[in-house]
Amino acid sequence: MPLDTSTYNLALLRVDGRRWNELRRVHAQIRTQAAADGSSYLEMGHTKVMCVVTGPSEPGPRRGTGGGGAGGAGAGGAAEVVVSIVIAGFSSVDRKRHGRGDKRTLELQSTVANALAASLHIHLFPHSQVNISLHVLSQDGSLLAALINAAALACVDAGIPMTDYVAACTAGSTSTYAANDEGADPLLDLNHQEEQELPGLTVATLGESDRVVVLVCESRVQVSRLEGMLAVGVDGCKQVREILDRVVREKGRRMVQEGTVEKGIGLNEMDVD
């Protein structure tokens, strides 16, 4: 069923009742697995992802190139970021088996690994490896964005130094490529149905800056629409960053209050002398 664009024009509401510039509900948790170095759980709408980070630790025995790993950086003096993604068979509407060597999964792995390797200060950990294991529990569009966000949160939890959060989200356009509609509006955070029918892109930025670290567009779209989509996407990334930051701060505040972590000094006290 094609997306009823006429309805959108009447009420300016999307199929799930959102406006063009609204994100879906984002729910995130960190430190979900006590035994792991870092872990997180992230929901963007109905896309649900779990992440576990191990390391930086001594790299295990070298695997063959056919394995599920994706190197973020060379071993020369810096840690290697290895991402493995498991997509559960029950995650989407039609039950599907995703093999280890699935080309789509491999591409997701290398995109996430490269995005995080750009932000993590891996040069501080030579001869070691950061293992990021992602499990997709439910898919409803914006999968790559959810994977990047979950991995970034888990890396913060693992205490791996990084330049800033890598926050990602998707952006699309209200009419299809074939419609060639000049006046099409950009959309923020596509769900599965929109992703199927409308042109869309995934964008990830480094923290609050406008620096784009990931930009993936797998559909045909007129170049005139691209700028608007990108602007909406970058703005969405900033909103996502705020949400992720709030989750970390909340957890940190609770830990300090409970006395798990010693209190820090405030800037006020610091600037007194």
Binding site: V156, P161, D164, E208, V248, R249, Q257
Partner: peptide
């Protein structure tokens, strides 16, 4: 203020 933490970035 004492319960505040700093975050990456």
């Amino acid at each position: 203020a004492a319960f505040e933490i700093v975050t990456p970035g």
